[in-house]
Design a protein around this nucleic acid. Sequence first.
DNA 1: GGCCCAATCAGCCAAACGGTTGATCCGCGG
DNA 2: CCGCGGATCAACCGTTTGGCTGATTGGGCC
Lengths: 219, 219
Amino acid sequence: MNNNIRVLLVDDHPVVRAGLRAMLADFEGVQVVAEAADGGAALAELSKLHTLGEPVDVVLMDLQMGPGMDGVTATGKIKAGEAGTPPPPVRILTTYDNDADILAAVEAGASGYMLKDAPPEQIRQAVVSAAAGQTALAPEVAARLMGRIRNPVHALSAREVQLVELLATGMSNRAMAKQLFISEATVKTHLVHIYGKLGVDNRTAAIAVATQRRIIRNQ
Amino acid sequence: MNNNIRVLLVDDHPVVRAGLRAMLADFEGVQVVAEAADGGAALAELSKLHTLGEPVDVVLMDLQMGPGMDGVTATGKIKAGEAGTPPPPVRILTTYDNDADILAAVEAGASGYMLKDAPPEQIRQAVVSAAAGQTALAPEVAARLMGRIRNPVHALSAREVQLVELLATGMSNRAMAKQLFISEATVKTHLVHIYGKLGVDNRTAAIAVATQRRIIRNQ
DNA sequence: GGCCCAATCAGCCAAACGGTTGATCCGCGG
DNA sequence: CCGCGGATCAACCGTTTGGCTGATTGGGCC
């Protein structure tokens, strides 16, 4: 009989996979049955294990994965049943916590979001609770999201986000005005509002903060 | 007798430490004798092992390490002998490759720069060659530095890279001048040179280009 | 229907920034 | 030894940005 939680690791770093494998090996009732270096390989592994009659109970997935399919896309496909399996719970396990990634992952169907600097016990909990069908966020992540919800004052409007995006490409006020078919005065007004909401007092600091919070995506 | 290479791991992620430990355990002649979660702990470990008569042959060091002392600072202190030991070779093992980090690490005395997505064999090589007193860069890193050397016209100097880094944090000319203990005039001169080399005409565009070319890190 | 807010625009003034010219000092390499 | 390039600083000037006050329009909401 089998009381084990069967885990699929998805991460492009061999070092991280080895670390998780070693960590989870120390825990009773958890078993790493397969690994994948990107989203495409993860889907293939899920499918293969399904046809072998050895289904996966939990997927531990990184988000940033070099050249291959990223974690959000892969999570979405898994949840859409594209692996040909009943979708197992997907736990995101990544390095950085930023609003955009978290929201995207949750929207794609992830059941939780953990950080790689978590202590082993937290990671074990993540796997166990995922297998039990529960959702869970790392404490740091949960705290930040709560702050977000409580503080809608600092949320940029869609137009303001648009401005920040252009800002980050290095455009002048005049250039942004032309691009958006508005006057420079309006651009300046938007910028002042943006500075206020982001708690900065110049455009480069606004870019820094917006990048850090992943309000905008770069590259 | 002891033919082993004695390694100290320095990384704030338990997962990564476990991964490296597991990987290196598979290799003959390599032995992880201690671990540290930040630069301060690394110095303490070096010192402790030295007094025990069990010196460290190679340090594998991460750069970004959360709240504690960062890897560049720690490398500098180790190389300055602040651990009370003959300085062992320090190999940087980090996630991102960008000129700013590489230059800072090499300047601090690191003997090599590896990326965490490297395959196990490359990581083993890094440890072995470091123990042999050689310097080594990851292929990706080496390729980019070669590009710099072949194209020195558009290559930023170390000082200029430093400026761009501060620039990207949103600092004003005055703030950068204070931070670097130079005059605003000098800051402006550097910026003009940077604009010329990057082919832009303002600071935000400089940040955009520098980020895209991985002259600075984008987080 | 009245209210709030995002989006739009104007004008003004001070501060910061960008462009230029020119200068000194220092280390490295032919 | 002499030149070259990097790093440092100064003065000047025009342009851009930031900070402020105020105004209009249109959409959503109670």
